[in-house]
Amino acid sequence: MKKTIKKLENNIVNALTEVCETAKDDIDGFIWLTHTVDFSNFPSSLLITCVFDTNASLNNAKAEAQDTQLIKAIHKAMFRIGVVLKRPKHNVTFNTEEAGFKP
């Protein structure tokens, strides 16, 4: 991995860690997030998955527009490190451990 790619990956991880820690405190049922990326097609290939404990928790978060709050927080965090997500709703997905999601 080239130095610039490694630095970018570290910046992404740090930014997402901040969002994750805040979300764990603010959103009931939110437990973690993960990401995948293909740097040859970056940033459109960046996919961030926000994971909740149960389907009910995810549904409650969506009913209270907390999914939109998470998308906005991720978008802002990426922007702060110089990553512009043209369609953040396509870069962020939601899943649950109850549904069997594993990293």
Rank of each mutant, 00 (worst) to 15 (best):
L46P: 00
A56R: 09
T36P: 00
L33E: 10
T22L: 13
L46M: 08
A73P: 00
R80A: 15
T36L: 06
D25A: 14
L47R: 12
I12S: 02
P88I: 06
A63Y: 03
N91G: 02
I74F: 07
K6D: 10
L8G: 02
E9R: 08
T22M: 11
L46Q: 09
S44C: 02
N41M: 05
T36I: 03
K62W: 02
T4E: 15
M78W: 08
E97S: 08
N95H: 07
D38R: 08
L47Y: 12
I71N: 01
T4R: 13
L70P: 00
F79D: 15
Q66L: 09
K76N: 14
T17N: 14
T36F: 03
E18R: 14
A65R: 10
K102D: 14
L33M: 12
I48E: 05
K24Y: 03
G82T: 02
K89Q: 13
M78K: 07
C20K: 15
P88G: 07
K89G: 05
V19C: 05
H75S: 13
K2S: 15
W32I: 05
P43Q: 13
G29V: 05
A23T: 09
F101H: 12
P103A: 12
I31S: 09
D28Q: 11
V84Y: 10
N10W: 07
M1I: 05
L70A: 11
G82R: 04
V84Q: 13
L16F: 11
F52R: 02
R87T: 12
D25P: 00
L16W: 10
D26Q: 12
A56F: 09
A56E: 13
T22C: 06
S57K: 10
K86G: 07
K2E: 14
A61S: 11
Q69R: 06
I81S: 07
K24W: 01
D67S: 10
E21V: 01
V84K: 14
F101Y: 15
F101R: 02
A65T: 04
D25G: 04
V51D: 06
N91F: 00
I74C: 04
L8R: 11
N91A: 15
E9W: 01
C50M: 05
E64Y: 11
G100E: 06
K76Q: 14
T49W: 02
A56K: 10
V19P: 10
T54I: 01
V37H: 02
M1Q: 09
I5D: 08
F30V: 00
T4K: 12
V13R: 15
F42A: 03
K76F: 08
F52W: 01
F79P: 00
D38W: 00
E9N: 12
A15E: 12
F79V: 02
K86P: 00
T4M: 06
N14D: 15
T54A: 07
K72C: 03
L33T: 08
D53Y: 12
I71E: 04
T34E: 09
